[in-house]
Amino acid sequence: MKVLAAMSGGVDSAVAAARAAEAGHEVVGVHMALSKSRDQTRTGSRGCCTVEDASDARVAAERIGIPYYVWDLSDDFHDLVVEDFLTEYAAGRTPNPCVRCNERIKFASLLERATALGFDAVCTGHYASIRADGPGGAPSLHRSRNQAKDQSYVLAVMGPEAARRSLFPLGEDETKEAVRAEARKRGLGVSTKPDSYDICFVADGDTRGFLERHLGEAPGEVVDTGGTVLGTHRGTHGFTVGQRRGLGIQQPAADGAPRYVVDIDPASRQVVIGAAELLSRRELVATDLIAFEPLEAGRAVTAQIRAHGEALPGRILEVPTAATTPASGGTSGGLLRVALDTPVRGVAPGQTLVLYDGDRVLAAATLERRP
């Protein structure tokens, strides 16, 4: 099989590419250059895809003995991930840029280019598994055996078609230490390289500062649920539902209890704060459903709303009209409604909702405001 191995410059993608080559596949390594700033370096970045990362990926590819190329996907990344991030925050929503990157870059732009060049599959170092146990024996996406590193949540938006054409060689590994040990054994210099973290295009980790620089200031009011003005802010994009600190208010609640952001209204420029109990929800409503198999009302599922959050048991209340598995991993219109057995806190519009059956991914969708 002809395989395109996405090589970030880290240990996981290097070992994944090595395993694919060792399995007898015809492997070509490619590094996706996502940053428009060619001056970005790892010492000044907390993310991935820096100048040093491209160099590390090249050295790893040479050690494995596979061809290696750098593809400039910075325009796609800026338009489909960075701009989406800014637009969503401006609309009072809380997106996960890693989800968007996986959906629109790694398993859309990259797979499209791979297909055009005659590759059969894309291989990455993600911690997830593809198994042939979906309906009719179709390939399905599963959690990694390494629960601490599991990335099935951020991969769920890839859809069934991309799953059929993806290889995740690390999905059955139980520890990251085992992967690093294998990298050392293979002579890969990235064996001790630290993991990337946080938002890769916010190099200094200051998300609020990044948003202010790009969206500017739009002053407004901080109010309680009764509409009483408690303070001011410089822009609703500096807040997320569930936030407790940096609210810009001086007077404490009458009962002395902590207060949190419970709603954001960009149109009126108001940030609404309230008691913790207002953050709890038993019912989740989402749109833009990407289903790996047909869903039906009444089905028991577990639901996860954060990358490393707990998966909570519940059941599907409603699926979009005629919602079936999208033939190409596309989205279906209408609402997905899920009732949880126990309430979950901090549900914010724009977050990704992923449904599981055990460790198998059933679907992904985008959370909306309260029903």
Rank of each mutant, 00 (worst) to 15 (best):
residue 97 P to Q: 00
residue 128 A to M: 10
residue 308 H to L: 10
residue 362 L to P: 06
residue 198 D to W: 02
residue 106 K to R: 12
residue 86 L to K: 07
residue 153 Y to L: 14
residue 36 K to H: 13
residue 251 Q to W: 00
residue 43 T to H: 12
residue 146 N to K: 02
residue 163 A to D: 09
residue 246 G to Q: 09
residue 112 E to I: 02
residue 192 T to D: 15
residue 45 S to A: 13
residue 297 A to Y: 11
residue 316 I to D: 07
residue 162 A to W: 03
residue 295 L to Q: 08
residue 230 L to P: 03
residue 89 Y to N: 06
residue 276 A to H: 11
residue 115 T to C: 09
residue 233 H to V: 02
residue 230 L to H: 01
residue 75 D to I: 01
residue 332 S to N: 02
residue 74 S to G: 06
residue 97 P to V: 01
residue 329 G to I: 02
residue 148 A to E: 14
residue 158 M to G: 04
residue 118 G to M: 07
residue 172 E to W: 10
residue 147 Q to M: 03
residue 290 I to P: 02
residue 230 L to E: 04
residue 241 V to H: 05
residue 124 T to R: 07
residue 102 N to S: 10
residue 221 E to Q: 14
residue 160 P to K: 06
residue 159 G to H: 01
residue 263 D to P: 02
residue 207 T to N: 01
residue 313 P to L: 15
residue 189 G to A: 15
residue 29 G to P: 07
residue 76 D to A: 11
residue 371 P to F: 00
residue 247 L to T: 04
residue 216 G to D: 11
residue 279 L to T: 05
residue 288 D to N: 11
residue 213 R to K: 11
residue 174 E to Y: 04
residue 111 L to H: 09
residue 221 E to A: 15
residue 11 V to Y: 04
residue 274 G to M: 03
residue 147 Q to F: 03
residue 188 L to F: 09
residue 294 P to W: 02
residue 268 S to T: 15
residue 93 R to T: 06
residue 171 G to M: 13
residue 280 S to F: 12
residue 121 A to T: 07
residue 358 G to E: 03
residue 181 A to G: 13
residue 276 A to V: 08
residue 153 Y to K: 11
residue 349 P to C: 00
residue 109 S to G: 03
residue 224 D to R: 00
residue 40 Q to P: 00
residue 27 V to T: 11
residue 187 G to K: 11
residue 277 E to K: 11
residue 92 G to Y: 01
residue 6 A to H: 04
residue 20 A to M: 10
residue 184 R to L: 14
residue 37 S to P: 01
residue 231 G to I: 07
residue 320 P to D: 08
residue 21 A to I: 07
residue 67 P to E: 10
residue 10 G to P: 06
residue 153 Y to H: 15
residue 190 V to S: 14
residue 140 S to I: 07
residue 294 P to A: 00
residue 4 L to M: 10
residue 220 G to S: 08
residue 288 D to H: 03
residue 28 V to C: 12
residue 96 N to C: 08
residue 232 T to L: 09
residue 369 R to H: 07
residue 287 T to W: 00
residue 153 Y to S: 13
residue 299 R to I: 10
residue 40 Q to A: 14
residue 26 E to M: 12
residue 243 Q to V: 06
residue 30 V to W: 01
residue 133 D to P: 09
residue 173 D to W: 15
residue 368 E to C: 10
residue 98 C to K: 03
residue 292 F to H: 15
residue 134 G to T: 09
residue 360 R to T: 13
residue 68 Y to R: 03
residue 295 L to I: 10
